[in-house]
C-alpha cells in the first residue's frame, strides 16, 4: 500500500472515483490497517460510497458521510467528525472527493491540515467521458481541481471504461492519451483500473500496475 496516511481520490465528474475509493478502502482494511473512508462527495445524489456503507463496515472500514446523506435533504453539509481523521494518527484515511472543480471545492477547507502531513492525491481519468476525451480538456479540469482544492495532484489513474461494454482496446487507448497528460504535467500513471477479466488481457507493459476493482455502484437489475 501507499506510504502516505491520506489518500485522496479526485477526478472529473463520473470518472469512477467512488468505485476506486471503495475498493482501495477495502484492500487497506484487508491488510489489517485501521481504515477510514470519508465520503466527501457533495455533487452526486446517488451512486455514492455511503450506499455501500454496510459492506464497507463489514470489512472493517469506518465510513464518515456528509450530514443528511441519502435522506432527501440535499444540503451539502459536512460533519465536524471529519476533523477527527486528522488527529487519529493510527488510521489510514481514504477521501472520496466529488467530481470536477465543484466537488474539489469541499476539500479546500481542510487545506491547513494537509500542510502538516503528507498526502497522495490521485486524479482518476476515464477518457470515454464527455469533456474528458482530449488532452486539453483533461489538463484544464486538472488545473481547476487543483485550484479549488489548493492541493497538488500527485498521481494519475487510468480508469477508462464504457461500463459493461468496455473493450480492452478502450483501456489501451485511454492509457495512450493519459500518458500524454502524464508527460505534460510530469506526474506518473499509478494504476490502470478495471475489472479483473479485462485487466488480464492487457499487454505486459501495462500489466505491471493494474488495480482490479469489484463493482459496487450498480443499478438493481445488474
Amino acid at each position: 500500500m501507499d506510504p502516505e496516511r491520506f489518500i485522496l481520490f479526485t477526478g472529473h465528474f463520473g470518472s469512477g472515483k467512488t468505485e476506486i475509493a471503495v475498493n482501495y478502502a477495502m484492500h487497506s482494511a484487508d491488510s489489517g490497517q485501521k481504515t477510514i473512508l470519508v465520503d466527501l462527495d457533495i455533487v452526486n445524489p446517488f451512486f455514492r460510497s455511503t450506499e455501500v456503507k454496510e459492506q464497507l463496515e463489514a470489512q472493517g472500514v469506518k465510513v464518515i458521510s456528509p450530514n443528511f446523506v441519502s435522506t432527501g435533504v440535499d444540503v451539502p453539509s459536512l460533519p465536524a467528525e471529519i476533523y477527527s481523521v486528522f488527529t487519529d494518527q493510527a488510521a489510514k484515511v481514504i477521501i472520496d472527493v466529488g467530481g470536477d472543480e465543484t466537488g474539489a471545492r469541499a476539500l479546500g477547507q481542510y487545506f491547513p491540515y494537509f500542510q502538516k502531513e503528507a498526502y497522495r492525491m490521485y486524479y482518476v481519468i476515464n477518457t470515454k467521458r464527455p469533456l474528458s476525451s482530449t488532452k486539453e480538456d483533461i489538463l484544464s479540469m486538472m488545473r481547476e481541481v487543483q485550484r479549488m482544492s489548493r492541493l497538488e495532484i500527485s498521481h494519475l489513474v487510468n480508469n477508462t471504461n464504457l461500463s459493461y461494454e468496455t473493450d480492452i482496446c478502450d483501456i489501451i487507448e485511454g492509457h495512450a492519451l493519459i500518458s500524454q497528460v502524464s508527460k505534460s504535467v510530469n506526474k506518473p500513471i499509478a494504476y490502470t483500473a478495471g475489472v479483473r477479466d479485462l485487466l488480464d488481457q492487457l499487454p505486459d507493459d501495462l500489466k505491471s500496475s493494474v488495480f482490479p476493482i469489484k463493482l459496487f455502484m450498480k443499478p438493481p437489475w445488474r
Binding site: 476515464n126 470515454k128 464527455p130 464504457l162
Partner: peptide
C-alpha cells in the same frame, strides 16, 4: 461511444 449519465 461515450459513457454518459442519463441527465448529461
Amino acid at each position: 461511444k461515450v459513457l454518459m449519465k442519463g441527465n448529461e
